[in-house]
Amino acid sequence: MSKIILITGASRGFGKIWAEAFLKRGDKVVATARNTESLSDLVAQYGNSVLALQLDVTNKAQCFEVVSKAQQHFGKLDVLINNAGYGLFGTVEEASEQEARDQFETNVFGTLWMTQAAITVMRNQGFGHIIQVSSVLGIATVPLLGLYNASKWAIEAISESMAVEIKAFGIHTTLIEPIAYATDFSGASGVTSKSIDVYDGLKSVVYEQFKAMPNGNPEATGEAILQIVDAENPPLRAFFGKTALPWVKQVYAGRIAEWEQLSDLSEAAHG
């Protein structure tokens, strides 16, 4: 039986690839984007299997309207994939107030509004699956993406708490945590803060490290997302990319080692 899947940020990157993967196998997709012209090729190829809707996720009312339209049009909503988001590049000091607020409005609040709207529909129908496109940077960090890191850490915390809250209603929660992929994340999709020259040396080193990272093939994620959606008991978290798990294991080993070294201090601070 075909599933009804709503994907935000479906105009390019993961969102577009996943929309096509679902449509090719016969699912119905509610594809959203700021500009629906970017979805015209999907509509032309898949016809009534696609409902293309304009959506700015920073508009709370519009988020609720889109979820309602999706449910009314197809009769149910099996899966929400919160994919809309972007990266803010620069040091923490360089980020302007507006850039910081915009980053959270899209990545955190946009995801929150869509999630809240979907929970209401899914709770009433007694089933559903909410998939949050987080990042490996939601559980570990790199320099020059501090505000982006923070936005994904927020989604991780919200979603982990939520998973327990909505499980009894038949709603599953999954966090997808991709590592570096050959998308336009650092290109047209990204925003770069005005530079402060004292950070030029650091940036040269870090950006060279970024360039040296082996990027995953975005097309390879299509089959992976199908498996997540089809799982009888979906995971709370899933890495996308072969270098994610080794890196995170190294990061967490370092954290645990530091905490253990400070265990006497921690216990003394308990009183």
Rank of each mutant, 00 (worst) to 15 (best):
H129I: 01
F22E: 00
A140H: 10
I171W: 02
R12G: 06
L202P: 03
H129G: 00
Y207F: 12
V136T: 09
A33L: 00
A238N: 11
A31D: 04
Q250H: 13
Q132H: 10
F64Q: 04
L53Y: 06
F64T: 00
A21K: 00
E258G: 14
A231L: 05
I17T: 04
L23N: 01
F104G: 07
D41L: 08
K69P: 02
I7K: 00
K28P: 03
R237Y: 01
D197T: 11
S161T: 12
A117K: 01
A180H: 10
K194N: 11
L175R: 00
Q261E: 05
V164R: 14
G15Y: 00
T115V: 07
F14Q: 04
W18P: 02
G128I: 02
W18R: 03
F240R: 03
G85E: 04
W18S: 01
L202D: 05
I139R: 10
R101V: 02
V79R: 05
G138L: 05
A70F: 02
A33H: 03
I225V: 09
Q45Y: 10
V121Y: 01
Y148L: 12
Q45E: 09
A220Q: 10
A21W: 02
P234L: 09
F240L: 06
G138E: 00
N217W: 08
G85N: 09
A33K: 02
Q71E: 10
A180S: 12
F64W: 09
T32F: 10
G170D: 01
I5E: 02
S195A: 12
P235T: 04
D264T: 14
S11R: 05
V79I: 07
T111H: 13
A95R: 05
E156V: 02
I81K: 01
Y199R: 06
A44Q: 14
N83Y: 05
D102E: 06
L265N: 14
L51R: 08
I155N: 08
G47N: 06
V136L: 07
S2R: 13
D184R: 15
N124L: 12
E94D: 05
G271A: 15
K16V: 09
A257P: 03
A224V: 11
I130G: 00
S38C: 08
L51S: 13
E177M: 07
W18H: 02
F240K: 00
P218A: 13
R101D: 06
E160P: 12
M1K: 15
L23V: 03
V30S: 00
F104M: 12
T141W: 04
N82E: 01
A84R: 13
E223Y: 09
G75C: 10
A180R: 10
K28Q: 13
G271H: 15
Q54P: 09
E93W: 08
L147V: 04
D184M: 15
T141Q: 12
H73F: 13
R25I: 03
Q45H: 12
Q103C: 14
H73N: 11
A157E: 01
I17C: 11
N124V: 14
Q116N: 06
A244M: 05
Q132C: 07
F169S: 02
A95L: 14
V108I: 12
D56N: 11
A269H: 14
F74N: 07
E65D: 10
Q71H: 12
K152Q: 05
G146K: 14
I139D: 01
E219Y: 06
I81T: 03
H129K: 09
G254E: 01
P214A: 09
K60E: 06
G254M: 08
G138P: 01
Q62M: 13
G241E: 01
T106M: 05
